[in-house]
């Protein structure tokens, strides 16, 4: 557990094979494409991230909440549930488990505030009607308290998680990589929780994949030493989407070593006991995810996808508003 990943429930109970389809995903994929389902996950994890930011919760809490969310939706489908209250329950529980608890009503109020406006003008009859407001998050504290127990049951009451951040930080220090590399790899790690990689790969593989992707797409030499890799998620998308910051050569004190940092990192990766294929698989998943993110227009996409997902097959009226809740 806290001391060892190898004896943790995260590995023994909740690590899923890389290529076995998850039942919850399968049911959604009969109605919408993988890319569309990925966009919904992006939207719901955006909600988690935004509420966490408003409440100034730590990244570890966000990572746990998103993992809980992924666990819940391993066996449940977006088409059969309303993910907003589940997202809220995930954050509330994660904050407790990470020993930074807040009142339940604070989470509920923040969710309500964030989801106050309809997704797009199409959703509300006049775009600002109060009934439409209530529709996106009509839940009370009592509702979320109840759902927390369902969430726990779905997870079979396994809550303790290890995250890739510690290892990532230690690796970057050990390899003497510039701060900007750590920063970008850190953001890539944050993004990995928006995919099911956290259910399918151990945290150390995710840390390695994030570092690998960062170094491959943004060679440390090409980075300005003082460059900040940006603080928004969008910057990460850009940066890893083939838009590296082309700055002057790195000012890393390299003690006159003849090899470049990239070569050094390459050698280091080659000598790892963790199979490179696993790392490459995670990197592939992340790239596929970033590709979807690049073409994501949250306000239009989500309501359109939900409309297709939630309308009963066959007699679905093509222009019906999404039944997010009610």
């Amino acid at each position: 557990m806290a001391a060892s990943y190898w004896s943790s429930s995260q590995r023994l109970r909740w690590l899923m094979p890389a290529n076995v389809a998850l039942p919850g995903h399968e049911r959604d994929l009969t109605r919408v494409s993988w890319a569309d389902r990925t966009k919904l996950t992006l939207h719901y994890t955006n909600v988690i991230q935004s509420v966490a930011k408003r409440m100034m919760l730590r990244q570890r809490v966000v990572a746990s909440a998103m993992t809980y969310f992924q666990r819940f939706y391993a066996n449940n489908a977006y088409c059969e549930t309303d993910p907003y209250p589940i997202a809220c329950a995930c954050l509330y529980l994660a904050a407790k488990v990470e020993e930074t608890p807040h009142h339940l009503r604070t989470f509920v109020n923040e969710m309500r505030e964030l989801l106050r406006h309809p997704l797009s003008a199409r959703d509300g009859t006049d775009g600002k009607s109060t009934t439409a407001n209530a529709a996106r998050f009509p839940y009370t504290s009592a509702d979320i308290a109840e759902l927390e127990i369902y969430l726990l049951e779905e997870m079979d009451f396994y809550m303790i998680l290890q995250h890739p951040y510690d290892l990532l930080t230690r690796l970057c220090a050990e390899l003497q990589l510039p701060q900007s590399v750590l920063q970008t790899a850190w953001f890539v790690t944050n993004d990995s929780f928006r995919t099911d990689a956290c259910l399918r790969y151990p945290p150390h593989v995710i840390a390695l994949a994030a570092l690998y992707l960062t170094c491959a797409l943004q060679p440390p030499e090409a980075q300005a030493p003082a460059s900040s890799a940006g603080t928004s998620m969008g910057t990460v998308t850009e940066a890893t989407g083939g838009n590296p910051i082309l700055g002057p050569g790195s000012a890393l004190p390299n003690a006159g070593a003849p090899v470049t940092i990239t070569e050094r990192v390459k050698d280091w990766f080659a000598g790892l006991s963790t199979p490179l294929t696993e790392i490459a698989e995670v990197a592939q998943r992340l790239l596929a995810f970033y590709h979807v993110w690049d073409s994501f227009h949250e306000t239009e996409d989500v309501s359109a996808i939900l409309a297709r997902l939630r309308t009963p097959e066959a007699n679905a009226p093509p222009t019906a508003g999404p039944s997010t809740s009610t």
């Binding site: 329950a89 009370t140 504290s141």
Partner: peptide
């Protein structure tokens, strides 16, 4: 109002 599982129950179970 119901406030979910207590910090103590959460710790003990986790």
């Amino acid at each position: 109002v119901a406030a979910g599982i207590s910090q103590s129950a959460c710790r003990e179970i986790a």
